[in-house]
């Protein structure tokens, strides 16, 4: 056996725990999504100005929450990887990135679908949408750097440095984009600041947020598993070549 498996001993425990969680996460996701979508799309009141269009918000806003929190989670995970050199840390950041990018993309698409009836155009350089777009670029860069290294452990460290710098920058970017938007705000345009918080609206939002979180968890477990097994496969192949 060419390479020590001790480096991958930790993943064994990780795999065991996540395998136990996985079916529950999947069930909870289905339930929450069903309830959340019913509350959001049928039970919630229509807005007196926006009509049924306001219901896009229930898909859009939690997706934007997820987009931000997954990036933060990746940064924390990468910091853990850099400091304590835990082998699963880098892999879990890597596994989370495409899911985060998908949520960002969902937020962008639903945002522009909402914008069509509101603004009369699919894209307005609204502060929130613009920040989302930049966040999407950050996700793309993160995924690209993983693909650009042959050595996966090097790729992990490089991606960790990048995501940490990115995480420091995210609030600055958010602030600068808001600033830019107030400077250039044309008068009397509806903004995407979301509906006014009211309990009939808050409940579906929160349920959808939880549904997305458990959806994330479900896909995340599959992806981390795939990463760990992929890494093992690579090592076995190398051993095969060398023997």
């Amino acid at each position: 056996m060419a390479v020590d498996l001790h480096k991958f001993a930790n993943p064994a425990r990780f795999l065991r725990i996540t395998s136990a969680i996985f079916p529950w996460a999947a069930i909870v996701t289905v339930l929450l999504l069903a309830v959340g979508l019913y509350l959001a799309l049928f039970a919630s009141p229509e807005d007196y100005q926006q009509g049924a269009t306001v219901r896009i918000m229930f898909v859009h806003v939690p997706a934007a929450w997820m987009a931000m929190s997954i990036y933060v989670m990746m940064a924390i995970s990468s910091a853990t990887g850099l400091i304590w050199k835990h082998p699963v840390a880098d892999l879990s950041a890597k596994a989370a990135a495409p899911i985060g990018a998908c949520f960002t993309f969902l937020a962008l698409v639903t945002g522009s679908l909402w914008g069509q009836p509101m603004w009369g155009t699919f894209w307005v350089w609204d502060a929130r949408l613009t920040s989302m777009l930049i966040l999407f670029f950050l996700y793309l860069g993160y995924m690209a750097i993983w693909g650009s290294f042959d050595d996966q452990s090097k790729a992990g460290k490089a991606a960790a440095i990048l995501v940490l710098i990115g995480a420091i920058n995210v609030p600055i970017i958010k602030f600068s984009v808001d600033w830019w938007n107030t400077l250039h705000q044309p008068a009397s345009v509806a903004t995407m600041d979301g509906p006014k918080i009211h309990s009939s609206i808050l409940t579906p939002l929160l349920v959808m947020g939880l549904a997305y979180t458990s959806l994330f968890l479900t896909i995340f477990i599959i992806r981390v598993k795939a990463e760990i097994l992929g890494r093992r496969l690579r090592i076995l192949r190398l051993a095969h070549v060398e023997d």
Partner: peptide, 10 residues
């Protein structure tokens, strides 16, 4: 450029 340009925005 993909890594750096978004960070130049502020």
């Amino acid at each position: 450029s993909l890594l750096v340009l978004p960070l130049y925005i502020p």
